[in-house]
Design a protein around this nucleic acid. Structure first.
Length: 377
RNA sequence: GUGGGUAUAGCUCAGUUGGUUAGAGCGUCAGGUUGUGGCCCUGAAGGCCGUGGGUUCGAGUCCCAUUACUCACC
């Protein structure tokens, strides 16, 4: 369970991270399957074909439905949805703040109502670890408070301090759970999460605190929540020097292809984002020449693939006109094809980044594609 | 055939005792979407108010005729 740094170019890093379910080549994009399913009808049978290395699922959602105890009974998440590669589970911290109703935060944890049925639920560090242990993911994320942006300085400071205390409880609880005889994945790891809103001094102070726990990985959370991208980059620039060099860094929930390029450039290794799949469900696609909205009328008779430079299973077989027709006809296949393409694009973007890092040409690639990827076709 | 009802945006419909530039939802067109409820948000285009007369300073609105659709009865 270790991170091996293979090569660096500036701050950018090329590495490999070992997990109980195989190695992860970094930088990497994790494909988001919140409820143990990639939205849009993509199954784990498809994941290898679209170059997915890591799948991400969510504690909050799976706890509410179908229930983490059921998943444990059925042999854990890997078996449940037929994926034998690495899985990371988010702690539920973010969802408690983004989805749940009527939440009440105390030192113990958060009491809230489920967004599905209004049921009252309590989740604290121990509960989050117990759920993630039942799921048996390879990487469990710490239970944190994702502070809204903007937030008061004093509130952010106190929240960070509490998130640090929660992190110690997460670590203790996971160590206890991993030592139990019937645990699903005894080598499950805990990664810590840096918070601090947009206050660089809080970010740095918090990062120093959580680095002391010597966890196998560290994330930057609470970004891309409405602040301008430049502020996000600035926070990364400030926090990165205080993140352990020999541990993977994960920028949670980010982002656009350009956000990812910029973050890799600044030393980040792991990413996840709903953007490729969510946008795909509305026919918003990413290509090597820019962004494209297949709903646009101009594509109604376009015989070309989504991206002529793409080698994904969708671009090898289907035209823009056909996929646009599927969307207009509300056929679910349209959504599925677009999600497959966008995830392949993201995974291929990461593969190219890795190749360029291997070859020492990342800087050139970064400069060449920063603007192209934002262009609207 | 007789009697009633309806006719307004592509669709389903609002529209005050007659009073500025006739509205909504859906659809269309175009933006947005960052640790995911397929949700949602923003903007735009789109009307000879069935047709022809009439009353009035002024008609989507009142009157007459006509056409189409529709319901009931014969």
């Amino acid at each position: 369970m270790a991170f091996k740094l293979l090569k660096t170019e500036g701050n950018a890093r090329r590495g490999v991270f070992s997990t109980p379910h195989g190695d992860i080549q970094t930088p990497v994009f994790m494909n988001v399957g919140t409820s143990a399913a990639i939205k849009g009808g993509v199954s784990t049978m498809d994941l290898r074909e679209i170059k997915c290395q890591v799948e991400l699922s969510n504690t909050y959602h799976l706890h509410i439905r179908p229930g983490d105890k059921l998943i444990k009974e059925l042999g854990g998440l890997h078996k449940f949805f037929n994926w034998d590669g690495p899985i990371l589970t988010d702690s539920g911290g973010f969802q408690v703040f983004s989805l749940a109703q009527l939440r009440k935060i105390t030192e113990e944890g958060v009491a809230f109502q489920s967004h599905m049925d209004g049921k009252k639920i309590f989740m604290g560090p121990e509960e989050s670890m117990q759920i993630q242990s039942n799921l048996g993911s390879d990487i469990a994320m710490a239970f944190d408070e994702c502070v809204e942006n903007p937030a008061e300085y004093l509130y952010s400071k106190r929240s960070c301090e509490r998130t640090t205390r929660w992190l110690y409880r997460c670590k203790a609880e996971l160590e206890r759970l991993n030592s139990l005889p019937d645990t699903v994945n005894p080598q499950q790891m805990l990664w810590g999460i840096n918070q601090g809103c947009t206050y660089n001094d809080l970010r740095i102070e918090h990062m120093k605190q959580i680095a002391e726990l010597d966890l196998p990985g560290y994330a930057i959370g609470g970004l891309a929540v409405g602040e301008p991208a430049e502020i996000m980059y600035d926070v990364i620039d400030h926090v990165e020097p205080f993140m352990p060099k020999d541990k993977p860094r994960y920028l949670m929930g980010v982002g656009t292809p350009v956000n990812i390029l910029e973050a890799v450039h600044r030393g980040v290794d792991f990413f996840d984002c709903v953007m490729p799949s969510r946008n795909a469900r509305h026919a918003n696609l990413f290509t090597w020449k820019g962004k494209l909205n297949l709903n646009n009328e101009k594509f109604f008779n376009d015989p070309r693939p989504i991206d002529e430079d793409c080698n994904c299973p969708v671009c090898r077989a289907y035209s823009r006109a056909y996929i646009r027709h599927l969307f207009k006809a509300r056929e679910m296949l349209g959504m599925r094809l677009c999600v497959l393409h966008n995830l392949y694009f993201y995974n291929e973007l990461m593969e190219k980044i890795r190749e360029h890092l291997d070859n020492g040409t990342f800087e050139t690639f970064y400069n060449e594609y920063r603007e192209v990827l934002e262009y609207r076709l």
